[in-house]
Computed example of a mutant assay.
Amino acid sequence: MFDLDRRERSKVPLIVKQCVEEIERRGMEEVGIYRVSGVATDIQALKAAFDANNKDVSVMMSEMDVNAIAGTLKLYFRELPEPLFTDDLYPNFAGGIALSDSVAKESCMLHLLLSLPEPNLVTFLFLLDHLKRIADNESVNKMSFHNLATVFGPTLLRPSEKDSKIPANATQPITMNDNWSLEVMSQVQVLLYFLQLQSIPTPDSKRQSILFSTEV
């Protein structure tokens, strides 16, 4: 995140901003948005265009199926060298979401969220607001908070390979009986928790930076 932040002079990566803009322009009522797969060749072509800073990327997106744009956004987060919630903080988020006391859980989860590096925090809050707007159209697009958390949770939160209970080369689908299914459930629950929060208070020192950096 830091290298990208310096190169683009923005705390929200351009690929995230532009994909979100296009999806909000014409994909808010698309049934199964983010759940339905886009064409793999379109996704790879769009990702390559962003990587190459292709000036025609906006034209490409306007002519592309919206599910491919959604797939490109998911691919971007999935391919980050370190997940958005960071390797170091992942175990703490997993522990925080397991707390039974609601007050202690909220305090812990918000503290951890605000402990993220600023580019990660700003990007997550930008994405979170977008996903909430997607869920506002659930009656049409069928994408509830839980559906969105299921899609994005394991992408935004994942342990480092050495700590993961999920085999790196797993070929079988995840089932509730697998030893590592609780890990995936925890990842989903963390994102679901933040999606369901009415608001996320941020320190005054960060609020202006966040508001400025997430303008699209």
Rank of each mutant, 00 (worst) to 15 (best):
M64E: 03
M1S: 02
D5T: 14
I23N: 00
R6V: 11
L46E: 08
T123R: 02
S58H: 09
Q187D: 07
P117K: 14
V216R: 01
V20R: 01
E22Y: 09
P154N: 07
E138L: 12
R25C: 13
E106W: 04
L192E: 05
L99C: 08
F50Q: 14
V151K: 03
F50M: 10
D87W: 01
T150R: 02
P154Y: 13
N54W: 00
I97Y: 02
S213H: 08
R9D: 09
G96H: 09
D136W: 01
S102H: 06
V20Q: 05
L14A: 13
L195N: 07
G153S: 06
P13I: 13
K206Q: 10
I210C: 06
N169M: 04
I43P: 01
L46G: 05
L75R: 13
G71E: 01
L46R: 13
S58M: 07
V39R: 10
V103W: 01
L156S: 06
M176R: 14
G95V: 04
V151A: 02
T214Y: 00
T214Q: 03
V12L: 09
S102F: 09
M61E: 03
Q196W: 00
A40D: 08
N147Y: 08
L116R: 11
F212K: 10
N54K: 04
V140W: 05
